[in-house]
Amino acid sequence: MTQRASGPADRATYVFAVARTLDPAVVADLDGMTAGEPVRLLPLGSLVGVVQSVPAHDFTDDAWQQRLSDPQDLERCARSHNEVVSASAAHGPAVPLPLATLYLSDARARQALEAEADRFHAVLKRIAHHAEWGVKVYSPPASPPAGAHRPAAAADRGRPAPGAGLAYLERKRGLQLRREQHHEQGLRIAEEVDAALAKLATAARRLRPHSHRPSDTQGSQVLNATYLVAEQRSHEFAELTRALRGRTGASIEISGPWVPYSFVSEV
């Protein structure tokens, strides 16, 4: 590897977000991805990028691969990224870029981002005065079979009553049927919640449901969706979620307000 004492190659430009205008003081005190370098603004014609110079050797793809497999490091990065993005969006719309958007230099960043200026303006228009709210629905835990499960009398042990095999099969079939019904009911609830919330939202997106872990006590996740909601309707949105929680009996988790990460790539 050829090491250069000090040159542009030692630094890379990390981009957090793009906004129309921004007060540099808003982000100046943040640590960003690497402490010691200021988070600063990069003028991009009619826009401004929120960037930070980072040591290139810390942000190679190998370094990222390693980072992604270290949950603590990944969490630190994700939170730092989100912190800067949220600060940038606190006083006006800002378009978030995904984690680890890096350019070799400020000039490269400017060149690439300015080329997309039209898109940025369209997105900024769309997300102005909007926030993103995440909604996750967990199907209620299966109710224990009421009455359907006849406990086999201990006295029957070793002397199967006539028709015991048939009863066993029926019991098994009933169990399977209930499981299917429960699953279908969960999906129905998910559809109902999604339909109701989507009506209130400006836009809606489904994210991939998180896989079920045995340690979860909440039941399986049947909906992982996210909604772009106008600021003045966020109250209504929370209200509606509460109403749906009561109506469906499902556990509904809501997270937000987020910078509209999920609604900036479609424009």
């Binding site: 793009v18 793809d61 989100n82 378009v95 978030p96 984690l99 070799l104 997309e116 996210t226 900036v264």
Partner: peptide
Amino acid sequence: DRVLATGVVVSGDLVI
């Protein structure tokens, strides 16, 4: 869910 999978992707020199 958000910082990794979403956001405006601009042909970056490195995007993970």
